[in-house]
Amino acid sequence: MDDLRRMAVFAAVVQHGSMSAAAQALRMSTSAVSQQVRLLEQGSGVTLLHRSTRKLSLTDTGARFAEHCHAMVSAAAQANAQLALAHDAPSGELRMSAPVGFARHIAPGLGPLLAAHPGLTLRLLVDDALINLVDARIDLALRAGRLPDSSWVAQRLCDFDWILCASPDYLRRHGEPGTPAELVQHQWLVGSREGSGLQIELIGPAGEREPLRVDARIASNNQLSLEQMCVAGLGVGMLTHPDVHEALQAGRLKRVLPQWRLPPGPVWAVTPQRENQPAKVRHAIEAMRAYFAATPGTRV
């Protein structure tokens, strides 16, 4: 490493034409510059410069050596420029993971960012399992709900509103519940990895809280499947408002007990580290945050 530093000092001496000019450019003393060049010559056993009281001149070997030193300094400058570019502008491959139900939000969320930065590419892993970010080399993961303890870093992007909904056909066949207590008589579609029950708490118009436990006729760990089954008229589901907004607008689903609400669910941007986030990750997080801020059924 000392030799590399001395080569850079030697390149500066040649570039600026004197020890003193190089010292000024490098913010070193003239004696320190002279010492570095002298140590470089002693280490190689070759004279690089002819010194006189008026000027410096290169030996033949020194001239050839200077070309390589200049190339080294130029390569280092280009390397630093790439680091600065990575810090300021998103580029390279962004490896991202998201649950299956969240995949629909990636294209509208990151589309403008990808369009604005042709040097940025995306590799998206869609999986409802909790992917190990380090093992899968994930730069950014979207997660929802309560997060398990880990060394990873989570930033809250927004809250999704949870709503109760069913298809109009189901409600015609089974009737619309008028109170929370009537919900237990209905067929339920429950998001669950294990078990067949769901414990929920409804919040009324005046702030009153109604705890409720319902049994599942259909349970799944996949929110997209639950949404599809809800549209198919198989029961009442607790689904996130942003995911079913289009189905509600199109009349494929209808809100159940709309005057009652559920506690919102947090959505997180999870990264393997907190410090020195590359531009592609920082810009992607901000792009998703901006998208969710404009999405119906979310709270930023």
Score class of each variant (00 low, 15 high):
260 W>I: 12
206 A>K: 14
298 T>E: 10
138 I>T: 09
114 L>C: 06
32 A>I: 00
159 D>N: 09
161 D>A: 14
4 L>H: 08
81 A>R: 10
52 S>I: 10
4 L>A: 15
119 G>Y: 03
228 Q>S: 12
15 Q>S: 12
296 P>S: 07
40 L>W: 09
77 A>R: 11
24 Q>A: 00
99 P>L: 06
89 A>C: 13
281 V>T: 10
3 D>N: 08
119 G>T: 06
264 P>K: 00
155 Q>D: 05
126 V>C: 08
126 V>I: 15
300 V>Q: 10
191 G>P: 01
46 V>G: 00
139 D>G: 07
233 G>Y: 08
230 C>K: 11
9 V>S: 11
123 R>V: 02
47 T>I: 09
10 F>C: 02
184 V>R: 15
18 S>N: 05
58 L>P: 07
237 G>W: 02
293 A>H: 03
113 L>C: 07
18 S>I: 03
100 V>W: 02
79 A>T: 13
150 S>T: 15
145 G>A: 04
155 Q>L: 04
236 V>S: 06
25 A>R: 11
261 R>F: 04
253 L>S: 10
198 L>D: 09
142 L>C: 00
274 R>T: 07
245 H>W: 07
82 Q>H: 12
51 R>W: 02
149 D>T: 09
158 C>T: 15
113 L>T: 10
101 G>I: 12
150 S>Y: 04
96 M>Y: 03
77 A>T: 12
226 L>N: 13
274 R>P: 00
171 L>T: 02
13 V>K: 13
191 G>D: 09
31 S>R: 08
300 V>G: 05
181 A>L: 14
